[in-house]
């Protein structure tokens, strides 16, 4: 009976191909990079040598150049993530609550359309829009809104616009799913109990959307920190991101040892951000449970939902409350 069946499928046997693949084509090569980071570059024709192991490359990583690029990258990715959040929260709320249910599918599909246009091509679109001699600049000057040509391209502002644009859908999706899952019933219940619209939004909808907020922020922050293409197309000299420095070591300098050390630092940093976010999320959840408690008939609170980096395999309250929607497991592109 059931236990026999569970024993078969619940057994890890079925996951062996996945295990094998991920270990062989992800864990092993990444481990190799970590190993290389302790080596050195002996001469111009050799990318690395492991004859002498040292932490020397890590000392080289912590150079003023690396640190200043690192700070700039961090600033761009934090501002970018927050801006995406600010843009996406009202938008996702609108899509999940205000738009008639029959239209939601179509509109959500439209949000995804940029995904299906190559992200470099989209970025090139921005390059044309922001050009000082481009049609937007000329139109703005024509109607007297600008006294001189638009001066945004190849500046930090251009990079910021570009990354916000490229990663916005990754924020909208999990937020929409979370707000949608939060359920009309809960909101109605809250309103029935006399809570105002804003109060309902801040005390019911938003807390229930917390898992979506967290997965959205991670989905935007992680690839954004590693992206250097958007920035190099739009930012010019202001668009040097940390990923570019790593790539330079491999593609120009042919110094795998130093490049590996940089990559390890970048990876550990990203991981640290994820762990901190996860911890923060736990705290926020606890606080919400404590302070923001609204007496609702169902009494369900959304747990961190399955699927994103931050969380664990166990399910969530949302799923129990509304079995039809299976939570915020958004595996967004890693563009």
């Amino acid at each position: 009976m059931t236990s026999r069946f569970r024993k078969f499928l619940g057994d890890s046997a079925l996951s062996f191909p996945t295990w094998a693949y991920m270990l062989f084509f992800f864990a092993l090569p990444v481990a190799l990079v970590m190993w290389y980071s302790f080596g050195f570059k002996p001469d111009q024709f050799t990318t690395h040598s492991m004859e002498q192991l040292s932490l020397g490359r890590y000392r080289e990583v912590v150079s003023p150049t690396f640190l200043s690029v690192f700070t700039a990258t961090l600033r761009i990715s934090i501002v970018g993530t927050l801006a995406c959040l600010v843009i996406a929260v009202p938008f996702a709320y609108w899509l999940a609550v205000k738009v008639p249910p029959g239209r939601r599918g179509l509109l959500l599909a439209l949000v995804l359309v940029p995904f299906w246009t190559n992200f470099l091509v989209r970025t090139l679109g921005w390059q044309i829009i922001l050009s000082p001699d481009g049609f937007v600049s000329e139109a703005l000057q024509g109607i007297g809104l600008l006294g001189s040509p638009l001066d945004i391209l190849y500046s930090r502002a251009a990079v910021q616009i570009g990354v916000i644009y490229n990663y916005l859908p990754l924020m909208i999706l999990p937020l929409f799913v979370a707000m949608d899952s939060a359920g009309v019933q809960l909101r109605e219940a809250s309103a029935d109990l006399g809570a105002g619209k804003w109060r309902t939004f801040f005390q019911v909808t938003l807390p229930l959307a917390t898992p979506g907020v967290i997965s959205g922020c991670l989905l935007v922050f992680i690839p954004l920190t590693g992206d250097y293409i958007t920035a190099s197309v739009l930012g010019g000299a202001n668009g040097t991101m940390i990923g570019q420095l790593v790539a330079n070591q491999f593609q120009n300098a042919q110094n795998w040892a130093l490049g590996s050390a940089m990559a390890v630092v970048l990876m550990l940093f990203t991981l640290a951000v994820v762990v901190i976010t996860a911890l923060l999320a736990l705290v926020v959840k606890a606080v919400i449970k404590y302070v923001g408690r609204v007496e609702l008939p169902t009494g369900q609170h959304a747990g961190p939902d399955a699927g994103t980096a931050a969380d664990l395999p166990e399910g969530s309250g949302v799923r129990q409350a509304e079995p039809a929607v299976s939570g915020t497991t958004t595996g967004g592109p890693h563009a």
């Binding site: 111009q44 150049t65 000299a237 040097t240």
Partner: peptide, 17 residues
């Protein structure tokens, strides 16, 4: 070449600062 890449990276960082 390694030295040139280093100079180049530093120059790029300086321009963006």
């Amino acid at each position: 070449q390694q030295r040139r890449v280093e100079i180049f990276s530093s120059a790029q960082a300086r321009s963006g600062a």
